[in-house]
Design a protein around this nucleic acid. Sequence first.
DNA 1: ATCTTATTACTAAAACTTTAGTAGATTAAT
DNA 2: ATTAATCTACTAAAGTTTTAGTAATAAGAT
Lengths: 123, 123
Amino acid sequence: MKELTKAEEQVMQIVWDLKETNVRDAITCFPDPKPAYTTVATVMNALEKKGFVNKIAQGKSHVFSVKIPKEDYSGYKAGALVTNYFNGSFSRMASFFAKDNKLSIQELEEMIKIAKREINKEK
Amino acid sequence: MKELTKAEEQVMQIVWDLKETNVRDAITCFPDPKPAYTTVATVMNALEKKGFVNKIAQGKSHVFSVKIPKEDYSGYKAGALVTNYFNGSFSRMASFFAKDNKLSIQELEEMIKIAKREINKEK
DNA sequence: ATCTTATTACTAAAACTTTAGTAGATTAAT
DNA sequence: ATTAATCTACTAAAGTTTTAGTAATAAGAT
């Protein structure tokens, strides 16, 4: 999996959001001050070259659509984070979040449910 | 919290590991081909400027020691990941890991324990 | 058909990151 | 005290990323 740079990631988040978009529409999703048209176009082309989006001619412009789903990249990034910052242990990360009160009761209960469901799957 | 660049992060991981170190010792932790002495020294100084390490003269050289604990930066990175890739929901991330069979039974049980402990804390 | 507007491909300037050299200072050895 | 080795501060080249301009092209309006 190729890495995205900051700028590429920002544009890619918009593509993931919209599923598909042309340059003009993508720009409207940027906070002010909005980047130049050609800036976004350049990044879009980089995303295509890296295989993250498809580029299809449509009318006088191009439509860029998701090629690598957000989930794929999320998984890649999450895996790297756990490896580099939590000794490869997910529960270590969970414990970190829990300690910091970053998790609501609801989220904790949801986590228990998920964990139990997975444990039963294995049996 | 300031962001670390790739090179800075690599050096910082070594400092976190060793707690404190001079440039020469840090270099031994690099895989071959090892970077030049001055390269590591430059990055160390950048880390000091960013407030991640302390720099103390000791004998003819300097000792760099952890100033921002790994946990602080880990938390920052994990928070950003959850925000940007899991809709701000940690349990969504947990579920993602669980589905992918990236979690062992042991880890899942550990997670349940952690969650239960936290839930009881709140009562 | 000409003019205007939108889009793209190509290019490049500006900013940032990485890597390391050089000169000078400090220490250690003889 | 001269020499050798090590370290730092400063500087800068090389590489990468970000941003956007310019020229060419295509579409739409009158």
